[in-house]
Nucleic acid binder design. Structure first.
Lengths: 154, 154
DNA sequence: GATATACGTAACATATAAAGTTTCATGAGA
DNA sequence: TCTCATGAAACTTTATATGTTACGTATATC
């Protein structure tokens, strides 16, 4: 399957929610993302458990942000998704008896660990507020609207 | 599917070949790796095209190393495998019209690009000779044999 | 209270890619 | 000629993200 896009997707959802006054339903968000409401609910389940968002049932219900955007990093979001695997490659065996494989594992494993650490460091250094600020900068430069319908094809 | 282990696997194969006088058949290598001869041939196809290894058919045939281990880096091997994807995550959409998604893509894309660059840098800095040297160091410390049968379960 | 709305969850379907397997053709040495 | 070994195609298996359907539950409006 192609690369996991859950982090990318959930950030997209969160930033749209930040621009939208009042709750957004899974249906609205799914339309914006070109996907299914159930996919949205799955993405959001972990975030709800951590208290980053809140969901309300029934009329006027939907999703609302329940945290300070400046206090939540991409690392927090990543962890709320269940820490999905970051690298597409890995060692063939975990604890091989073969010394050759141990040498290979050690060399590759170091590189893999470093790359993972780099990603987590980068995630930890970016807040949702920073992402939102970047969005608003792009918006000012282009002079568009924050309205969902203006930015997404119907 | 679990993480791609082709690079790990092909390095394992190469280092065993380096320790073995004369050609090794796909059958021998497959037994050592706990896999199928066809899998070995698939792994080696790209390396053969680049001249890193040579294959001979018929009696006494098999695979032999055809390069200077000190001149070939893990990056060369990685490229011979067809540059398989390094990261398990990616952006949801490549060139989105949505400014929110553009902001998300920019932030994540930078981190992803850096992680990939780090991995390729690390691969490029490691030669097969360095891996082999590390293996021999481990061997001296443990005082074992380079014989395949001694290091792999039957 | 009845109805429509919206989330929660389970179950199932689809798509993709690595890995494993089977089969047959081809070439090389004994 | 017979056996060994690679080359390549085709098929199966497995894992996982994503997409879809269906049904239960809670809530607001009428």
């Amino acid at each position: 399957m192609r690369r996991d896009s859950r982090l990318s997707g959930v950030l997209h959802v969160l930033l749209h929610m930040a621009e939208h006054p009042g709750p957004m339903t899974s249906e609205m968000l799914a339309r914006a993302m070109g996907t299914n409401p159930v996919v949205i609910r799955r993405l959001m389940a972990g975030l709800r458990e951590r208290g980053f968002v809140r969901s309300e049932k029934g009329h006027g219900g939907g999703w609302t942000i329940a945290c300070d955007l400046a206090a939540v990093t991409l690392l927090d979001v990543y962890e709320a998704l269940g820490r999905p695997g970051l690298l597409a490659m890995g060692n063939r065996t975990e604890a091989p008896g073969c010394l050759v494989e141990q040498a290979v594992n050690a060399a590759l494993g170091d590189a893999f660990d470093e790359a993972e650490a780099l990603l987590l460091r980068r995630f930890g250094a970016l807040t949702l507020a920073a992402l939102s600020a970047d969005f608003h900068q792009r918006l000012a430069k282009r002079g568009g609207s924050t309205d969902l319908e203006k930015n997404h094809a119907a």
